[in-house]
């Protein structure tokens, strides 16, 4: 029994080391193989900085828009349940089920200059493909399931009686949303925001097709790393990868800190109510 448990532990540890720790270690080792100054030089080049700025900005906008969109879709699916909501529920997972390059291709075919939609948009001064708008569309498409699926269970778990209590106490529909529903969903909204943000940060397949990859203009971090690899600059690619991973990890840490802070504020207020005698 004990031997079996040890064997299982070893198997899991071995697998984790093989598929997670070693590749991560390889990237970090490669990133710093030329020393600290070489690492800084690689990640501080104007093209790299612009790629990271663009990635952060566009991921942030994607996260905000898709969290709002995810909330709306989750409410429709869980509360209003109109005819066809079953089909909508299934379609939400489509971006997860198809290769992201296909997602990019779909956008190019729809909004490209040869398609009727693309032509019409171009005539009206709106270019989607090979622009930042195209990148945003691709990221919105790819990350929407993360927002919806993060919010759906929280909306399901909402206590409708709390909303009814608020109505009876005189709150309008808008006030019920602001004062009762949104605060009750704050953890799920935080998760949706972080999940879509980090997923947008690391997206490659759809963006590489839609963005046109113009350095300093439409090149995001993941595509920038790919470009360095294509030019046999493994050390530069590894350095940029380390920064990208660090930013994603930072987002998760910030989310955890924020949730812990909310919890601690609660505990502090409780302690104040107790006359400050409770240790928190």
């Amino acid at each position: 029994m004990r031997f079996g448990r040890m064997a299982l532990d070893s198997l899991i540890s071995g697998a984790l080391i093989l598929i997670f720790v070693l590749p991560l270690g390889a990237v970090i080792q490669q990133a710093f193989s030329g020393g600290w100054s070489s690492f800084v030089q690689a990640v501080m080049s104007p093209i790299a900085i612009r790629a990271f700025e663009l990635t952060l900005a566009i991921s942030f906008v994607t996260a905000i828009l898709n969290t709002a969109m995810g909330l709306l879709i989750a409410v429709v699916l869980e509360r209003w349940r109109p005819v066809g909501s079953g089909a909508l529920d299934a379609v939400i997972d489509l971006p997860l089920a198809i290769p992201t390059t296909v997602s990019g291709l779909m956008l190019v075919l729809l909004y490209g200059p040869v398609s009727p939609v693309g032509r019409w948009l171009t005539e009206h001064g709106v270019a989607v493909v090979y622009t930042r708008l195209g990148i945003l569309f691709a990221l919105l498409f790819v990350t929407v399931p993360y927002a919806v699926r993060a919010l759906q269970p929280a909306i399901q778990a909402l206590d409708v009686r709390q909303e009814e209590a608020a109505w009876v106490l005189g709150a309008s529909g808008r006030r019920v949303w602001l004062k009762v529903i949104v605060p009750a969903l704050r953890h799920a909204l935080g998760s949706a925001l972080i999940l879509t943000f980090t997923r947008a940060m690391i997206e490659f397949g759809s963006v590489v097709i839609v963005s046109g990859n113009k350095p300093m203009q439409t090149e995001v971090a993941s595509v920038y790393i790919y470009g360095l690899l294509e030019n046999y600059d493994q050390r530069g690619a590894a350095a940029a990868a380390v920064i990208l991973m660090f930013l994603c990890a930072l987002a998760f840490v910030l989310e955890a800190r924020l949730l812990a802070l909310l919890g601690r504020r609660r505990a502090v207020r409780w302690a104040a109510a107790e006359g400050g005698t409770r240790h928190v």
């Binding site: 009686r161 209590a165 009876v168 709150a171 309008s172 004062k179 009762v180 605060p183």
Partner: peptide, 27 residues
């Protein structure tokens, strides 16, 4: 319901979990 001036106490209390007792009562 907003205009009926009735008070309602639910079986599961339906208190606003993110609000303090004071905030619940003053809502």
């Amino acid at each position: 319901p907003q205009k009926r001036n009735v008070g309602l106490v639910f079986q599961n209390y339906a208190l606003f979990q993110h609000m303090t007792v004071y905030d619940n009562v003053s809502f």
